[in-house]
Simulated scan of single mutants.
Amino acid sequence: MRSPFSITPIGTLCSPFKEKFAVPRQPGLAPSALAYLDLHDEANQIEAVRSIEQYSHLWLLFLFDQNLEKGWRPTVRPPRLGGNERIGVFASRATFRPNGIGMSAVELVNVSQNNGQVTLTLRGCDLVDQTPIIDIKPYIPYSDNIANAQGGFAQAKPTPLDVHFSDSALRALSQYPHQAYHQRVIAEVLAQDPRPAYKQGKEDDKCYAVRFYVQPMQILVVAVEAFVETPPHC
């Protein structure tokens, strides 16, 4: 049955995560990462976000735009279950969904308008750069934070790994004026162990490259057993 409904994105998110690999699997796992939401077309009005600063956090509704053409799957293999056990798609937050819609709770840092462009500065996003945003809703603590809620197989927050930077990686970071910020975001992302689920907790001598940011800030980091370095070639 064809639906008469259609959805038009209200904005686009500019985030530090330039590809799906290593994007935090849930919001807030890389709490230092800043992202910028530019509103589009009719939504690009400062009146549309009037009084939004009274909320510390927002819900973003977005499209899994990189997966839409691949269709959806009735069962999925969540990484938290090792990538082997299948569960129903509606019992997960998997990206392959019937309508390709996701939701993410993020911290609101700032609202600005420059040359007619309304931008929301956000913190703690788990979205790929250029993700289409289809709606924004305030996070309401008394109703959205349910103290006795059960989280199924994702009840507990993942235990982060220790991330260390080699001298060569620190020298690369020192070229940029916001070294501490970039180092903190990289460490928070890699601490979640972005490798495939079946690799986690095992010996692994493979090199993994993670791409963050855009020019002029672009750093290649390599994680081997939770150790970060910038080798001459990989």
Score class of each variant (00 low, 15 high):
residue 139 Y to D: 10
residue 144 D to E: 08
residue 141 P to V: 09
residue 164 H to W: 07
residue 135 D to E: 11
residue 7 I to W: 03
residue 18 K to N: 09
residue 9 P to V: 03
residue 104 S to E: 12
residue 122 L to C: 06
residue 190 L to V: 15
residue 154 A to Q: 14
residue 116 G to S: 02
residue 207 C to F: 15
residue 172 A to R: 07
residue 231 P to T: 08
residue 1 M to R: 14
residue 182 H to W: 15
residue 93 R to E: 14
residue 194 P to H: 05
residue 71 G to R: 00
residue 82 G to V: 01
residue 163 V to G: 09
residue 133 I to P: 04
residue 213 Y to P: 14
residue 128 V to A: 09
residue 59 W to M: 08
residue 38 D to Y: 13
residue 8 T to R: 12
residue 5 F to M: 09
residue 73 R to S: 14
residue 97 R to S: 00
residue 219 I to W: 11
residue 87 I to T: 02
residue 163 V to P: 09
residue 77 R to I: 01
residue 133 I to F: 08
residue 223 A to P: 05
residue 166 S to R: 02
residue 87 I to E: 00
residue 78 P to I: 10
residue 28 G to A: 05
residue 52 I to C: 03
residue 8 T to H: 09
residue 38 D to F: 12
residue 60 L to V: 08
residue 192 Q to H: 06
residue 23 V to K: 10
residue 69 E to G: 03
residue 199 K to H: 13
residue 199 K to Y: 13
residue 64 F to M: 12
residue 233 H to G: 12
residue 130 Q to C: 01
residue 79 P to L: 00
residue 51 S to T: 14
residue 45 Q to S: 15
residue 68 L to Q: 05
residue 133 I to R: 10
residue 5 F to K: 10
residue 214 V to F: 09
residue 16 P to N: 01
residue 19 E to C: 04
residue 124 G to W: 04
residue 201 G to I: 13
residue 81 L to K: 06
residue 204 D to E: 14
residue 155 Q to S: 08
residue 114 N to S: 06
residue 13 L to P: 02
residue 130 Q to G: 01
residue 211 R to Q: 12
residue 70 K to V: 00
residue 165 F to I: 08
residue 161 L to E: 15
residue 75 T to Y: 02
residue 57 H to D: 05
residue 53 E to A: 03
residue 177 P to N: 05
residue 195 R to M: 02
residue 27 P to E: 15
